[in-house]
Every structure is written in structure tokens, then in C-alpha cells.
Design a protein around this nucleic acid. Structure first.
Lengths: 220, 220
DNA sequence: AATAATTTTTAGATTAACCTAAAAATTATT
DNA sequence: AATAATTTTTAGGTTAATCTAAAAATTATT
């Protein structure tokens, strides 16, 4: 059985939606995530159900089967490994790699991804701090907290960002925020929930609530 | 204007056929090269002509336009750079990389290929000794001769192989023949045109005419 | 509970890339 | 030159992946 690029993309979208919400994944959520008409999604869901990659009940939404889950996990593994390659080896910035990885993840061949993983030194996180499942599909979990939830005085090491959009990442570059730096919360303004933080023990900046919610740190 | 993967593959096939024969490239040659029905080729030729990538005259064959030539050259550049990456960086054998490169060559993004080229140190030849056009589409030419045409006593450095098929390449591995080694022609058997050669100044082996024709050396 | 609003599916089309079979054009052979 | 053989094109279909518009099912609201 062959799985097409389009099918892979649907599986990945379903996986990612299911990750957030724990109910069945609805047609419209998928349509929104994929920028397609709901009718196209219904079409595809039938095909994926046919191939036993999802459990699909009309009007009730879908769930990945074990096979579907495995495929989606592998796809995410490939995507994130390619992102590491693009940043670490080719020198791309972290806001430039998404679209390329989106293409590279569909290149077929087990040995390729295993060798790439090896070449990169089995990285466990991608350039945005997202975990990379290993060859057996196992995830590495970390105890991360949003900067927006720190108490004044508390600090942590930046280990992830929730928003991967270019403008956000470039803004972080501009204010000197990158993975691995220390962020200490100095104060919170009650009115708009913006926070004052100290970066790397040096610069002090104010972050809007929206920005602070998108920064993930490991406390301590 | 978007160029699809299928279109790219046709352009590449046309380029490669035109390289060998200097007449117009005929529908059936393309069909043979691509393993498709002649009717499918005609279909595609119309589309490529529409997009000004080929000059097409019914029943008369085709020729690449400047745009078509540029696209085909870039595709070959991408293919061969990826092959270098797979062999040099990921440790694949030279007979394992074709299919992967065939997929990787279709990943879109100028910066990607330029950075890859840079990462690899601007290689001018791929793992089979084929030249890699530079970013401006310029080729490196070499004065190569087939081992089958050497005179007894003459020697050369192996710089290329004409057949890229796995069985041939694995046979070469087995008898210790790799790019860069020295090959000296000792004797030729008139009956079947097989040749006795000395490899790296050490081993002596007999090569069939077919094998000798597929080995390219620079004399001296 | 009936009706309104929303979501999802079905119906019917479109496009790219393929196919087979038949027709047309070109090339080779008597 | 006429006919035979070959090559190429046209005609008509198929499949995956998309679409819009209409119908059906579900959910929310009076």
C-alpha cells in the first residue's frame, strides 16, 4: 500500500490536532488546519479510513489507528530532523526552515532518515525546541512552563517556542531571545499582563502577554 | 508559473537524450526513457510547449528552449549535489543514492541548493564522476577516454562510470575499482575484446569489453 | 419540542498525469 | 510510386486531489 504526500499531510494534521484537544478530530478542524474545503476533507477521510489509517464515523470525527499514528510520528520525526540539518549544517535561521522541511519530510526511504539522524548525532529536539521522536516512535518529555506563568523572581532556561511563525521568531532574534538562554521574570503589569524579564542576566525587556505565552522554559 | 515534478522529469529526460543524439528528441525515446506510453508523452509535450519550455513540432520531435535548458540543468545540479551529500556525509554507497537523489532533486528553494553546494565545498563531480553544473549552469569538461580504447601499456586515473546500475557498481566494488584509482591496460584479447588491466599498480583482473567501455579514465 | 444555526456529507466538476485503442502521419521497403 | 511498417497523435477513460453548491445530519436556541 502506497501512501501519498497528501495523505501523509492529513495524518500529520490529525495527529497535531488530536495532541491538543482530546476529543475526536472534526472535519472542520482539519479543513482549517489544511486550508482546504470541508468537502475535500471528507473525501480524504474516506480514503484514509479505507486504508485503515484512521477510524472514521460520519459526522463524528476521526481518530488515528495504530498504523496512522506510526506514520504521523515518523513524518514528524523526519520533519524535525531535516529542520535540525537545515539549521545546524546548512546555517539557515530558525524561521526559514519550515517550508523546506515540509518538502523534505516526504522523501521516502528508511535508511535515509536513520543515517540523517546518526549524522546529526541523534538530536532530541528541533530548532524550535520541539521533541524529535526516536526511531521507535518514543517521545522525550520535559517539564516546561510558559513564561507568562512564572512568578516574579523565578527564572528558567528557554527550551521551546509555541508559535513558529516568521514574524514572531524574528522578533525574538531582535530582542536577543534564543533557545538555551536564561529568562528571569522581574515583574508583571496587572493591567495587560505584560511582563518585564531579564535576558541572559543582562538585558531587561518587556514582553506582551501574547509573547510570554509562547515562550517555554524549564524552571530553575 | 509553477513547474510540477512530472514536468521537471520530462525536461531532464529530454536534456539527457539530446546530450547523446544531436537530432531532435523523439516522442518514443522519451517514452522509453520514462517508462510511459507514447500517448502520455504527447500529452506532456503539449503542456511543456504551452509553458515555453520546449519547441515542439508535431511528429518532428522536440528541443529544449533556453528556459527549459536552464531548468533541466538546475535539476541535474540538484540531483548530483544531493548524491554527493548522501555519499560523503551520510555514508551511502555509490549504488544506493540514485532513487533518493531522484526525490531530493525536486525539493524547491534556491537558497537550499546554494547552501548545500557550499556545505559540500562546491564539488565539481558527483560520486559517479559526472560533472555538477555550477550555480550559473556552467559545466566542467574533462578529457576522458574509455578503458576499452586504451593501448596496451597505457594507463589512466578512473574518473567516471557510464553505467550507474547497482549490479555494475557492486561488481566494481568487488574487484576493487573505485573513482580515483589507477588502471593500466596490460593486454587485449582480440577474440572478445576483453582486456587485462592492472588496478592501483597491484591486482590484475580481466574486464569484459562491456565493462571496459563503461569505465572512463583520464590518461597519463 | 420545534426551529434555527452550524457542521458535515453528497453530488457534480475540474485538473494533472497517466492509460489503451484507433486514426493519422511519417518513414522504409518492395 | 505504391504499399507496408513504424511512429505519433487523437479520442476517450481513469484516479487522486481539489473545488462549489446543495442536501442531510447534528447541535444550539428559542
Amino acid at each position: 500500500m502506497t501512501i501519498t504526500t497528501a495523505e501523509e499531510n492529513y495524518l500529520k494534521a490529525i495527529f497535531k490536532i488530536a495532541e491538543k484537544e482530546d476529543k475526536a478530530v472534526l472535519t472542520n478542524s482539519i479543513a482549517a488546519a489544511m486550508n482546504t474545503a470541508a468537502a475535500s476533507v471528507t473525501d480524504m477521510l474516506k480514503r484514509l479510513a479505507e486504508k485503515q489509517l484512521i477510524k472514521y464515523e460520519k459526522y463524528r470525527g476521526v481518530e488515528l489507528t495504530e498504523d496512522g499514528n506510526r506514520l504521523a510520528t515518523t513524518l514528524i520525526r523526519k520533519h524535525r530532523l531535516w529542520e535540525v540539518f537545515l539549521v545546524e549544517k546548512l546555517g539557515f535561521a530558525w524561521d526559514e526552515v519550515h517550508d523546506l522541511a515540509e518538502q523534505l519530510e516526504h522523501v521516502q526511504g528508511e535508511p535515509l532518515i536513520d543515517r540523517l539522524d546518526n549524522f546529526l548525532g541523534h538530536p532530541r529536539f528541533d530548532p524550535h525546541g520541539d521533541p524529535i521522536p526516536d526511531a521507535q516512535g518514543r517521545w522525550t518529555f520535559r517539564q516546561q512552563v510558559r513564561v507568562s506563568l512564572l512568578q516574579p523572581g523565578e527564572k528558567g532556561i528557554l527550551t521551546g517556542v509555541d508559535d513558529h511563525a516568521t514574524p514572531f521568531l524574528q522578533y525574538l532574534d531582535q530582542i536577543g531571545v534564543a533557545l538555551g538562554i536564561e529568562i528571569q521574570l522581574l515583574d508583571r503589569t496587572e493591567y495587560d499582563q505584560s511582563v518585564q524579564v531579564r535576558i541572559s542576566g543582562k538585558t531587561e525587556v518587556t514582553l506582551s502577554e501574547k509573547v510570554a505565552q509562547n515562550l517555554l522554559v524549564i524552571k530553575g
